[in-house]
Nucleic acid binder design. Structure first.
Ligand code: FES
Ligand code: FES
Lengths: 146, 146
DNA sequence: TGATTAAAAGACATCCGCATCTTTTATGGC
DNA sequence: GCCATAAAAGATGCGGATGTCTTTTAATCA
């Protein structure tokens, strides 16, 4: 609901990496894809975009893989939406009128705006670290599509 | 945002027909598509589905076209979503996990559920007639994509 | 019945999200 | 420098949403 598979896969990938980061090793795309039960090459593409946007670090070659950087944990979810889906979607009228704004609102504009605002507020305030909890083993397992 | 073009076009089509219904004539797809600035044949397909679902009436031949029936005005918007987009989307986990429910909730489940509930409540309670107002001329004009 | 009109139905075309596979580039160890 | 490893990058395929065009079916009127 609301967002693409790319967004869901990317978030789970980041969470998986964050949960294992204390092991002081790079996490490889093969491992992530397998543990999350997500298509490997497709996840590769997605993580590539996340790295390019600066949310994660990656290195090629032996012992290479993905790892967090100083910004990863404090990144708000809306930033990830921007990377995977873009933010244009938040300005589309539910009636598909050209302009969605309060000046020429469609009959549903105000109600939709209320819901949109609530969603945006939550995605602006919630960061990666907010989604992590102590029960890591269970949580990692639960990240798999299963 | 949230819904397909089909949903937006269908809703505008229905609203246009409803606004002109007092003229006691059938409204043709050509006129609707032109007034809404929406692709004619594509709108035809969409309206076909709306008729098949029983939300509107249509007749072929001279003086034929689309018209309301006794259920049109009191139809809740969620019914139209069901016709154009389906309701499956409301059961998809934002992390793309297989099952979205309170038993095995993902870290975002509860927050998403709150927003989803608000949206569903609004779409269940709002009917076509709720979207019509007195300023018809302005409103009809505003239905065009423009 | 025959002509006209307008929706229904179906055949295509296009684009994008999703996915797979292959080739290239960068890194580390020897 | 050479080899092995792993991400980056590119080519290709599939399916569904979107959009166009043509053919068929049904209704009205003369
Ligand atoms: S104008 Fe339609 S949702 Fe904003
Ligand atoms: S379990 Fe993820 S949104 Fe419900």
């Amino acid at each position: 609901m609301f967002f693409s598979k790319s967004f869901g896969y990317a978030l789970r990938g980041i969470l998986y990496i964050a949960l294992l980061q204390d092991e002081q090793r790079k996490i490889q795309i093969d491992e992530i894809a397998q543990k999350l039960s997500v298509p490997r090459h497709f996840l590769g593409k997605i993580m590539q975009g996340v790295v390019k946007a600066g949310l994660l670090q990656s290195t090629k070659g032996p012992y290479g893989g993905f790892s967090m950087n100083e910004t990863t944990l404090t990144t708000p979810l809306i930033k990830l939406v921007e990377i995977t889906d873009g933010l244009d979607q938040f300005n589309i009228c539910v009636l598909q009128l050209r302009n969605c704004n309060a000046v020429n609102p469609c009959p549903l504009h105000q109600e939709m705006e209320g819901i949109k605002t609530k969603l945006l507020l939550m995605f602006n305030q919630t960061t990666i670290v907010d989604l992590l909890n102590d029960n890591k083993k269970v949580f990692i397992k639960s990240l798999a599509t299963q």
